[in-house]
Design a binder for these strands. Structure first.
Lengths: 205, 205, 205, 205
DNA sequence: TATGAATGAGCATTCATTCAT
DNA sequence: CATGAATGAATGCTCATTCAT
């Protein structure tokens, strides 16, 4: 009949069956809109429409808007993490480590403009109650503290510093330079070279 | 004379002071709430109530909520500016300058916890349209670039750096350390000492 | 007693004493704004400011906005009434009467553009509750019915009409032509001549 | 078990008809309330409630209150237009045309009391800005001017008139008589007869 | 699984009116 | 008499979420 005819057509061309397709579409749409418009200016409805889905579908995949945003943040964090892992230097000297991480974060920002900024939206902004234990940036500072401690052990960095404090300083410097570098389209090589030298010199024993 | 006159009036119980008091009350209340809850979780009504005023009064002093927030940001910026001006070192060596500014921003953050973070709320968060030309942090990075250039001229800093890039790096390091220092109640002396040495060493010719 | 006190005051004329200057200013301002913007877009505050007075002063002269509007309507009605009285024809033939009244209302509209339209704002528009007994236009229709009855008595108008119905018809014709004439800047002489002939012919025995 | 239970429930009792019902309900409700209370005393919420819907639903169908009112006006105009079209006389003599149109507008007013008055609410009343080019009444006056011109051509009306002016006069007479006739429950036959004779006589060559 | 019409708590803002001065 | 800062009930509108289909 005409019905089976239609069924056979719809069965293979457009909506591709199966389920996780929708979630992937929603994720892409959510990232796009959260980055472009920010958390508050993005409605679940907008995300669903951008994904080409009905807006009820949004709630099949996320319990609420907040969860969707948190998932976006988590994905971005994970993505950056893997991005950086894949760019670790073979030789773990301080300079190589700094240069590699710097290059990594810089490249990520260039490839995914706005994503880090959006993903770092303070949780205060998305929900007055659930204040997060430790902001993302601070946790990344801890990672740098580890790098510094390791360098101190190897004699590549001065022992006169408190690793935690200096870890935060390095993270801050990198973050700010990467943000501003992306903003102002500065030449990448120059930025990386300057900042690497700056940090290596600062840590030199 | 006039003082005693006022005193006798304000000394009374019920009828409170008069005119420009309201704006001051609103400013105090707005700062408190924007800092505690963020922009979106603060309603004009909350600000007015916190100020002990009817909510219509809010609109006697600000055309809308956005304007109130912008005024708060501007006040905080101005306040920090004056705070820092009053703490400039007598002797303008690089080390003294860094130490003084570092101490200044650190003290300000300690005395006004959360204010800088709130005042730096991205404009994207408060209104998708009116994107600001240059974020506050970036502009402060320019200031540090000036400091660096001056130090280069005096031979106190290496000429091998691009002042703009390094200016952003210094600003980033300071900002991150000050934020995290305020968060974690770290001992102030130690933080200032570490970061000052770190930056001076980084710039050393 | 307080009563006698009040009595002596209320015994006086009405707004009496001192400066009726403010009331006059308010009336001018109210008329201007009600005509230009309509009832709902005009705030007591606007009227007071237009009058060059503080907005509290408004309530010294009117109990509320509605009363002010009603006073404006009444003044306009009275003004038109006197305007017409001063233009009654010496000789009371039907034609002369029609011509004179027509000319009167036309001139009034030209001299006070928008006033009649504003003053005829349906009471439904200004207050859902106090629906007025008989709209202004209908009452004016009654006046025309009187004119028609008089003309019938004199043999100047056909007896075959119901005076009430024809009175409303005449009023409607005049009102519409006057409004549209004012709107379209049509040549006055021609309008008056056409409409007078039209109505005289309609009534002719 | 539970499924069949639900099925039997959903099958007959609670869940009402589906989609485009809402707009129709809103239209009915809006017309009722705009006619009864006027534009300003009718809140979108009232319309929705009158329609038996939540007030968010209102904004699914209209961008704002103004648009809803304008839609009501347009519907009423269209409705009257079709009402009149269906009542055009077979024979287009002046008298028949006048009588038919008169009867039409009179019947419409009787069947839909208050609708014409509400639909003619001046745009100044609903929004100070969007002043409409040509008021409804004036445009209807143009239609009557056409009728008059046609009658002049046929020798059924005197050539001594300006058709535009007389068109407005006829429209005004009809409008006023219809309004007042509806208001005062006057006997319809008599009104139609009087006004038809009045206008035919007025135009007679 | 997918849909989108429906919902109503919640928000920013206005404005007629009061009252201390 | 005059003022204008203060008030808060009321308004038009939005949007995260639900649920019948």
């Amino acid at each position: 009949m005409e019905q089976s005819d239609i069924a056979s057509k719809t069965g293979d061309i457009r909506p591709l069956r199966r389920k996780p397709e929708s979630l992937a579409k929603l994720k892409r749409a959510a990232r796009k809109l959260f980055v472009e418009r920010g958390y508050h200016a993005t409605r679940p409805q907008d995300i669903a429409r951008e994904a080409g889905l009905g807006h009820g579908t949004f709630y099949l995949h996320y319990p609420d808007k907040r969860a969707c945003f948190l998932a976006f943040v988590d994905d971005a964090r994970q993505e950056l993490h893997e991005f950086m892992l894949a760019r670790q230097p073979a030789e773990k000297t301080l300079e190589k480590t700094i240069a590699a991480n710097l290059k990594g974060i810089y490249e990520y920002s260039a490839q995914h403009p706005g994503v880090l900024a959006a993903a770092m939206t303070d949780e205060l902004v998305i929900d007055a109650e659930g204040a997060q234990a430790t902001p993302l940036l601070v946790r990344w500072g801890f990672d740098w503290a580890d790098v510094v401690r390791e360098a101190m052990r190897n004699g590549q960095a001065s022992n006169s510093y408190d690793a935690e404090i200096v870890g935060q300083a390095i993270l801050g410097a990198i973050h700010q330079v990467a943000s501003e570098g992306a903003r102002s389209q500065r030449k990448r090589e120059e930025v990386l070279d300057n900042l690497t030298r700056f940090l290596v010199q600062a840590l030199k024993p």
